[in-house]
């Protein structure tokens, strides 16, 4: 969609769904205020600067030593773009019913015979046993600021990896907060977001039941049915640095959380490095086995 720059008058191509960008000719910020005001409630400003994000990205890539060298050497600051991506932040209440089998340990004293100094002796030992009981019950919890990606360009799994964000730092939407930064309008439908939200809250409730509620020493066959009620929902723009890194099979996308500096991105692995690692492991294993066998043979000869 072409828009006229209010400063230099140039026709600027604005990608669909983007409401804030800058003019490529005069660098003036361009913000579609009306579209944004009706869709965005709050903005979390950038805390991590471009230079910091580039340093974090370099460190992340340097630490990924199984990645191809061509990937590890890139990440200059110029390759990073600041983007404000739309998320839906939800306060919700989940109420679940569950059934599970609960294991409670008990110890049985077992008598056994063994040989000590050439003599047969009787000893006892404690053997762990588990008895299982069925249990059903309810669970309830309130979740605050659960985030769901509202951007088509950011899949939910990648968005989850970027979290957490401190939404206590969010400021009410003001066009000035997005000026000069690429900012997107929500592009995922409300229905799709509701479905993702329900799935994620069900998973969180099930994890909470398993980790924090079920009694006993172990559990199995957990079945959970969850109903979630949304109490508050708002659209928040969250700061992300996006780097396009040249990979062996095309460009790779690596993201940096603009508030915490968390770096997220699936990096390819170098098959040469993995093969070298396997060869080294085999050589070390071979050397250890040879040493053990050699020592055994020497000991046998000495006896």
């Amino acid at each position: 969609m072409a828009r006229g720059c209010t400063q230099c008058g140039a026709a600027v191509e604005v990608p669909s769904g983007v409401f804030s960008t800058s003019c490529p000719f005069c660098d003036s910020p361009l913000v579609e205020v009306e579209a944004a005001q009706s869709a965005i409630d709050a903005v979390v400003p950038f805390v991590i600067t471009k230079a910091q994000a580039a340093r974090l990205l370099r460190e992340h890539l340097a630490a990924a030593w199984l990645a191809p060298e061509s990937v590890r050497r890139v990440a200059r600051a110029e390759e990073l773009d600041a983007v404000l991506l739309p998320f839906t932040a939800v306060d919700a209440c989940t109420r679940s019913t569950y059934s599970a089998t609960i294991g409670v340990d008990w110890y049985r004293t077992e008598t056994y015979t063994t040989t000590e100094n050439g003599k047969t002796v009787v000893r006892t030992r404690q053997v762990r046993e588990t008895e299982w009981f069925p249990l059903s019950g309810e669970h309830g919890r309130r979740w605050f600021d659960h985030l769901v990606s509202a951007s088509r360009g950011l899949p939910e799994a990648e968005a989850n990896a970027l979290e957490p964000y401190d939404l206590g730092r969010a400021l009410p939407f003001d066009p000035a907060l997005t000026a000069g930064v690429l900012a997107e309008l929500p592009s995922v439908s409300a229905d799709e977001q509701r479905k993702v939200l329900a799935d994620e809250l069900s998973q969180r409730a099930a994890r909470d039941i398993e980790r924090s509620l079920l009694p006993g020493d172990r559990s199995s066959q957990l079945h959970v049915s969850t109903r979630s009620d949304v109490e508050r929902s708002r659209t928040v723009l969250l700061p992300v640095w996006i780097a396009a890194v040249a990979g062996p099979k095309g460009p790779l996308r690596v993201l940096v959380n603009g508030q915490t500096g968390e770096v997220v991105g699936d990096l390819p692995r170098s098959w040469w490095k993995i093969a070298a690692l396997v060869v080294v492991a085999l050589l070390v294993g071979f050397a250890v086995v040879s040493c053990v066998l050699g020592c055994g043979a020497v000991m046998g000869a000495l006896r």
Binding site: I102, V104, D105, W106, E129, E131, F133, L135, S136, G137, E138, H139, G140, L213, L214, P215, G216
Partner: peptide, 23 residues
């Protein structure tokens, strides 16, 4: 307050305990 609870109570079982839950 809605308190959802689960725990172990004393019982005549092998382990001397039994799981219970309530609200």
């Amino acid at each position: 307050l809605e308190l959802y609870w689960a725990g172990l109570e004393s019982a005549f079982t092998r382990s001397g305990k039994r799981p219970v839950a309530g609200t």
